[in-house]
């Protein structure tokens, strides 16, 4: 209060020099504002993040408009065109990998969510040793892709892998999980489901436990069976958990490169498991087709955004964004 009073008398006494005084006053107030005073704290992290992420995206997009390849010269940014995108859309490799990416995304996400929901419902039904079981299921999530990929590679070994040994007991197999183009994608999806279903379970379990008991009780008194209670009353209320789990899983599916690279130990993965991410890395770091790889990266980014956008829209509609 005291300061505002000062300002009023100050501007009143200097009748001729009102403009510079006003300018100084504004500058002084600006220098005292929260934005300016907190500048050293937000600017550094903001600029590092901005340069690393958005600068990277911008640079990648710029490169994708050039014809840059090899190490000989710098990219020529004077001549920008959409050649790389046109080439990508006509490339059979891009079409096959996009198809594989979609299969991986949809099958992996659906199965993982269904399994996670099923496990969460089992655990939610007042089971003993719940915490321990929860930890056991969540544990694969804590393992590195490199570890799990190697581990499943051995599990899938055609001669003495555990999967074939177990199936052999029932007189099945042996199957060439990794070698057969028909099986390899499903084998990879199964391994990824194994790793991520615990995560989906934890998300759903949190959702289930946030529902009040009386929802279950009201449905029981209303005459609904256990299955109908879950199907009609409980699962529809898990919408926000489902959406967040689905988004995370879809994103993981898009960047399954790490898993595939670790499993097969090279850029060239079996064609049946070749996804956009592996194709992009191969084009860039094996063949040095920088511009072409950048174009594929941009396509991948647009796909990710297309997945995220409805989620953000949903969050916004719920008022939590």
């Amino acid at each position: 209060m005291a300061r505002s009073k000062d300002t009023v008398t100050g501007s009143g006494s200097v009748s001729t020099g009102a403009v510079p005084n006003d300018w100084r006053d504004r500058l002084r107030r600006f220098s005292k504002s929260d934005v300016v005073r907190s500048f050293p704290y937000w600017f550094i992290p903001f600029s590092i993040m901005g340069l690393g992420v958005y600068g990277g995206i911008g640079w990648n997009t710029l490169i994708s408009f050039t014809d840059y390849e090899g190490f000989r010269e710098r990219p020529d940014i004077t001549n920008l065109d959409l050649d790389m995108y046109i080439q990508a859309l006509q490339d059979p490799a891009v079409i096959v990998t996009t198809k594989n990416t979609f299969i991986l995304m949809i099958v992996f996400t659906t199965v993982t969510m269904a399994l996670g929901l099923f496990l969460a419902i089992l655990l939610d039904r007042e089971i003993r040793y719940k915490e321990k079981i929860q930890t056991i299921y969540l544990l694969p999530m804590a393992l590195s892709f490199v570890v799990t990929a190697q581990f499943w590679l051995w599990m899938y070994n055609v001669n003495n892998g555990l999967v074939n040994v177990v199936l052999g007991v029932f007189g099945l197999g042996p199957y060439n999980w990794i070698g057969s183009p028909d099986l390899v994608l499903w084998a990879v999806i199964f391994a990824l489901v194994w790793q991520f279903s615990g995560y989906a379970m934890v998300v759903f379990l949190a959702g289930l436990q946030s529902l009040p008991d009386d929802q279950f009780e009201a449905a029981r008194v209303d005459g609904a069976s256990a299955f109908k209670t879950y199907w009609r009353v409980i699962i529809p209320q898990l919408k926000s958990s489902s959406v967040s789990a689905a988004v995370i899983l879809l994103i993981f599916a898009l960047k399954a490169f790490t898993f595939l690279y670790s499993m097969f130990g090279q850029y060239r993965v079996p064609q049946a498991t070749d996804i956009l991410a592996t194709l992009m890395v191969r084009e860039a770091f094996q063949l040095q087709n920088w511009a072409y790889a950048a174009a594929i990266a941009s396509i991948l980014l647009v796909m990710s955004l297309a997945i995220i956008a409805p989620y953000l829209h949903y969050q916004h509609k719920q008022g939590s964004l």
Partner: peptide, 20 residues
Amino acid sequence: QTPQERDIAMVFQSYALYPH
């Protein structure tokens, strides 16, 4: 009998309406 088999209806303190 289970609650489903009994011909009863209950009003809960929290109402327990199905929000969706």
